[in-house]
Design a protein around this nucleic acid. Structure first.
Lengths: 211, 211
DNA sequence: GTCTATATAGCGATAGAC
DNA sequence: GTCTATCGCTATATAGAC
């Protein structure tokens, strides 16, 4: 299954990598837009500009194609937040930067759609959700935990339980608005509202954990 | 449409209210367990022990049945949290009680399934999500806001923005674990872990907002 | 390896007997 | 009002030509 990707040239005529990429792209678009059940293999093939059998040739079945599409989408979404903590610098600006990046990440249309699809399918494919979680949220929590340990050691903050504090921080920045976007009845927020929200979250966090 | 519920006796033979109830119950079970697309009208009719046409007779089509099922489920889930705030009593125990009730509510299997279904369908039926939100989360936020205003007036807490603070409180109690349950890869938490989580959330909140 | 055409099954919704 | 039987449609997955 994997050697299709690693060694495109098997015995006989090689499969067209461009078509494979087109299929994967089309699958991502449709799965994210219409969900698993809402996306037919016909539609995916049409969107990719190939025949349906070509889709089945590259990816065994619908489940497999879905897994590859999600996996690829996760890798695109992998965040590059700034968890650096320079010496002798106050902590608020660092947390504000992380908060802004995280907020933008989880509330982007792409991210909301990905979450929606995973939640819809979550009950039936826990492995895929686990993969997503390890590649995404878990890494953010780990890095945040490391940053908070450093901040505690530097005397910038007073944090007894870094893991719990990391969870608290992300929960605060996430807020209730993200849930509204997920269920599809959110009023659009202005940039200033978003910024105020993040400021409030960081302020609450720092106030509670200051030495 | 509604008078079917209010006046079960129309002209001619009355429809069987017991069958209507059985259909609604079966629809709730299957929709919550297998989602919208995963639940066929055949399966619902079989689960209810009636014919499929009886289902169509009581509820116009699948969308309508789904709306009634979700609406009914929401009314069952309507929480009775304790937002009382007696005079001369510390605030922590009150927040702990609310936090525990809220945590139990949103992490129950029934609630997770309802959220999952709403999120899956959310993109396609925003009205239903709006109805759910008004009946559930919005009311909790409102009541929490009122409580925080009182707490501020009493000098128990120092809260400039009660709405934002209410959102922060619920976000903290909710935590990251709820999301894990939604995507279907959560390790079960022990009672003591849950209690510690809620204590930490309340502690953070009170520490930041103490006068 | 890729295409057109098709097999098989399940869906939502309906017609007509009782 | 409720039932059995069925229509019309669409889905996943496959067979055979090039």
């Amino acid at each position: 299954m994997l050697n299709k990707l690693l060694t495109p040239n098997g015995p006989g005529r090689p499969k067209d990598p461009a078509k494979r990429a087109a299929i994967l792209e089309a699958a991502q678009r449709l799965f994210m837009r219409n969900g698993y059940d809402g996306s037919s293999m016909d539609a995916i093939a049409a969107e990719a500009g190939v025949s349906k059998l070509t889709v089945y040739s590259h990816f065994t079945d619908k489940e497999t194609l879905f897994s590859f599409a999600v996996k690829s989408k996760c890798q695109q979404q992998v965040p590059e937040l700034l968890f650096e903590l320079a010496e002798g610098v106050p902590i608020e600006p660092v947390l504000l930067n992380i908060g802004r990046s995280f907020h933008q990440l989880i509330n982007s249309a792409e991210s909301i759609e990905l979450h929606r699809v995973l939640i819809s399918r979550g009950a039936q494919d826990g492995k895929l959700s686990q993969m997503f979680f390890d590649a995404g949220p878990q890494r953010l929590i780990d890095e945040m935990q490391q940053l908070l340990i450093k901040a505690d050691a530097s005397g910038l903050l007073n944090i007894a339980n870094p893991l719990a504090a990391a969870d608290q921080f992300f929960s605060l920045v996430k807020g209730g608005c993200n849930f509204l976007l997920l269920i599809g009845c959110a009023k659009p927020q202005s940039d200033s509202e978003i910024d105020n929200h993040i400021r409030d979250a960081v302020a609450l966090f720092v106030r509670a954990y200051r030495p």
